[in-house]
């Protein structure tokens, strides 16, 4: 699913290089526990999380993930935005819960 389509399906605000919007991403994992992400999310491009600290970006970066979706209407801190930009990680913010955002993306074919 392209970055553009992911953002549309979950009504997300996107922080990304516009050149990347048609890039195709595969696989996703959702959790607020970074330890679980590190254990279970290998080879998936998208991280859905409600956690807001810089370690979400480092965790995604360590796993070579391409995109972080912050759920439940939270706003990325400036520090998170800077770190994500530095590491070429696309950042999104959605008002949806993790359950709803995951459901919509799964229904659309992401990770299926």
């Amino acid at each position: 699913m392209t970055i553009r389509e992911i953002a549309e399906r979950i009504n997300a605000v996107v922080y990304a290089d516009p050149d990347r919007l048609d890039e195709d991403l595969t696989g996703a994992f959702g959790s607020d526990m970074m330890s679980d992400v590190l254990a279970f999310a290998e080879n998936r491009d998208v991280l859905l999380t409600g956690l807001l600290n810089p370690q979400i970006v480092r965790t995604a970066h360590m796993l070579d993930m391409q995109c972080i979706i912050i759920v439940r209407g939270k706003t990325a801190t400036p520090e998170i935005k800077t770190l994500a930009a530095q590491n070429d990680i696309v950042l999104m913010e959605t008002q949806m819960t993790m359950y709803e955002a995951s459901g919509r993306l799964y229904e659309g074919g992401l990770g299926r």
Binding site: D32, M33, M34, S35, D36, L38, A39, L51, Q55
Partner: peptide, 13 residues
Amino acid sequence: RSLGFGAGMGLPN
């Protein structure tokens, strides 16, 4: 745990 760590998966990972 509220910072996203402490799930007891680190050493096994």
